[in-house]
């Protein structure tokens, strides 16, 4: 596939960011909030793409790393009164450290061990919040990005401010990730995923590369978690098991091998609850349906995608195109 040079990519990211700001100025509050959610979800999906699409490992509990990042950020704000940008840094570092420990134990193992371990983490981690008082129980912790600067004017709402921050951070992170994946690291991971035996014969240290991939992925997820905490709340209810399902669904829908697809996946994920709302309304607005329908749609989509195009719709389309080109 044709790849942009780093300089051109930078310009593209910059222009895209500019476009986002202009659009965000013209839509209502709900859309801005959804925009912020899309940005955060994009980053969370990117963390899976890095892990599954590039190094061939699977994490079923990415939500746990988001939670670690969010809590680390919120704690550093509560106890150290750290400035906001520093809490984001803390989020990355703490969850990356967490990922490193986990990868050290499970990263060298084959698929099922890692899948199960991460799932165990996603089920168990949120329960900890209720058991240690400094984690704030069900109500969670206070974490905010502060008010928007006054010179933006009275009409500059809090959500617009959140969107600005989220979009800005996510764009930078995605740009760095893109460069990382095009670097030696990215090539090594791709080689690993394609054939780890061949890669190790070429001098790749398989265990070490996998641990690196897992650590970076956890760090990225932690950053996404801190941003999610900013947009919504830092409490166990923000990081249920279904969050992990949702992220992995987004990654699969996006086609786990393309970083750009992650935005597409995020858009789909944010649109699903809206569609579910409409359907639930048609079905008579019973509470049972309203609360469970979004999860149902996401899970069904996940199964259908792995059934009919396991490498993601984007990948399938690309393959078809290539076959066309050959004939």
């Amino acid at each position: 596939m044709h790849k942009l040079s780093t300089k051109k990519a930078f310009v593209a990211y910059f222009l895209f960011g500019w476009l986002l700001l202009i659009v965000a100025d013209r839509v209502d509050e709900l859309r801005v909030y959804q925009g912020a959610t899309i940005a955060v979800t994009t980053l969370a999906i990117a963390s899976i793409i890095l892990l599954t699409g590039y190094s061939g490992q699977v994490s079923l509990g990415q939500g746990a790393f988001l939670a670690v990042g969010a809590y680390a950020a919120a704690l550093s704000q509560t106890f150290w009164q750290s400035p906001f940008w520093f809490t984001l840094l803390i989020a990355i570092l703490v969850s990356a450290a967490f990922g490193f420990i986990l990868a050290f134990a499970a990263g060298r193992m084959s698929g099922p061990y890692l899948a199960g371990t991460t799932l165990a983490l996603a089920v168990g981690l949120p329960t900890l919040a209720n058991q240690f008082s400094f984690l704030g129980g069900e109500t969670g912790l206070v974490y905010d990005a502060g008010l928007p600067p006054e010179r933006f004017g009275e009409e500059f709402t809090l959500y617009k401010w959140f969107f600005w921050i989220a979009a800005f951070v996510v764009l930078i992170a995605m740009f760095l990730l893109r460069n990382l994946l095009n670097s030696r690291f990215g090539r090594t991971w791709k080689a690993l995923r394609a054939n780890s035996t061949a890669a190790s014969l070429c001098g790749v240290n398989v265990a070490q590369s996998k641990i690196t991939a897992f650590t970076i992925s956890a760090g990225v997820a932690g950053l996404a978690g801190a941003l999610l905490g900013m947009v919504s709340i830092v409490a166990p209810s923000a990081f249920p098991l279904s969050l992990s399902f949702t992220i992995i669904t987004g990654a699969i829908l996006a086609g786990v091998t393309s970083l750009l697809g992650s935005m597409l996946g995020a858009v789909i994920l944010v649109v699903i609850p809206e569609i579910a709302d409409v359907i639930a309304h048609q079905l008579g607005d019973s509470e049972k349906i309203t609360t469970n329908l979004p999860g149902f749609i996401v899970s069904v989509l996940l199964i259908l995608t792995v059934l009919f195009s396991p490498n993601g719709p984007a990948e399938a389309m690309r393959k078809r195109k290539e076959q066309h080109a050959k004939h």
Binding site: F245, S299, N311
Partner: peptide, 30 residues
């Protein structure tokens, strides 16, 4: 058929867990 397809069965069981739990929730409530 592909690098990720090998992970598909595991991911599908996860999806199935989600489908079943949401259907159970729709029938019996949460």
């Amino acid at each position: 058929e592909g690098p990720v397809a090998a992970l598909a069965p595991v991911i599908a069981t996860l999806g199935l867990l989600g489908v079943i739990k949401s259907i159970v929730g729709m029938i019996w409530g949460n």
